[in-house]
Simulated assay, not measured.
Amino acid sequence: MIEIKVCGLKREEDIKYVNELKPDYVGFVFAKSSREITLEQGINLVKKLDKNIKAVGVFVDKKLSEVEKIASTLKLDVLQFHGKEDNEYMSCFKSFEVWKALGVTSKEDLKEINKYKVDGILLDSKVLGRIGGTGESFNWDIISNFKINKKLILAGGLNSDNVKEGISKVNPNIVDVSSGIEVDGFKDFDKIKEFIEKVRETV
Score class of each variant (00 low, 15 high):
50 D>N: 15
28 F>G: 08
44 N>V: 10
55 A>H: 03
63 K>I: 08
53 I>L: 03
36 E>T: 03
57 G>T: 04
23 P>N: 07
57 G>L: 01
37 I>T: 10
54 K>C: 08
47 K>E: 14
54 K>Y: 05
25 Y>V: 07
24 D>E: 15
24 D>I: 01
55 A>P: 07
25 Y>D: 07
56 V>N: 07
50 D>A: 10
42 G>A: 06
38 T>H: 02
60 V>P: 02
52 N>H: 13
36 E>C: 14
58 V>R: 05
33 S>M: 03
41 Q>I: 02
30 F>P: 04
38 T>K: 12
53 I>Q: 11
42 G>N: 03
62 K>A: 13
51 K>N: 13
28 F>S: 12
49 L>I: 15
31 A>D: 07
22 K>Y: 10
32 K>S: 14
32 K>C: 05
24 D>Y: 05
30 F>H: 02
44 N>D: 15
32 K>R: 15
60 V>H: 04
59 F>W: 06
57 G>E: 03
61 D>S: 09
34 S>L: 12
58 V>L: 11
29 V>P: 08
28 F>P: 05
61 D>F: 02
28 F>I: 08
45 L>E: 00
37 I>E: 04
57 G>I: 03
47 K>F: 01
40 E>V: 11
33 S>G: 08
22 K>M: 15
27 G>T: 01
60 V>F: 00
62 K>D: 09
51 K>R: 14
50 D>V: 04
60 V>K: 10
61 D>P: 04
34 S>H: 08
57 G>V: 00
56 V>L: 02
53 I>S: 12
38 T>R: 10
39 L>V: 07
32 K>H: 10
23 P>C: 12
48 K>Y: 07
37 I>S: 12
58 V>P: 01
63 K>C: 05
52 N>F: 14
48 K>M: 14
58 V>D: 01
33 S>F: 00
45 L>W: 04
25 Y>P: 13
36 E>F: 01
56 V>G: 11
54 K>V: 06
52 N>D: 14
31 A>C: 05
44 N>L: 09
38 T>L: 00
50 D>C: 06
31 A>Q: 07
23 P>H: 02
35 R>G: 00
37 I>G: 12
26 V>K: 12
23 P>R: 06
23 P>W: 00
46 V>Y: 00
59 F>Q: 03
45 L>Q: 08
36 E>N: 14
25 Y>M: 10
23 P>V: 08
30 F>E: 02
62 K>E: 15
57 G>S: 02
22 K>T: 11
63 K>V: 01
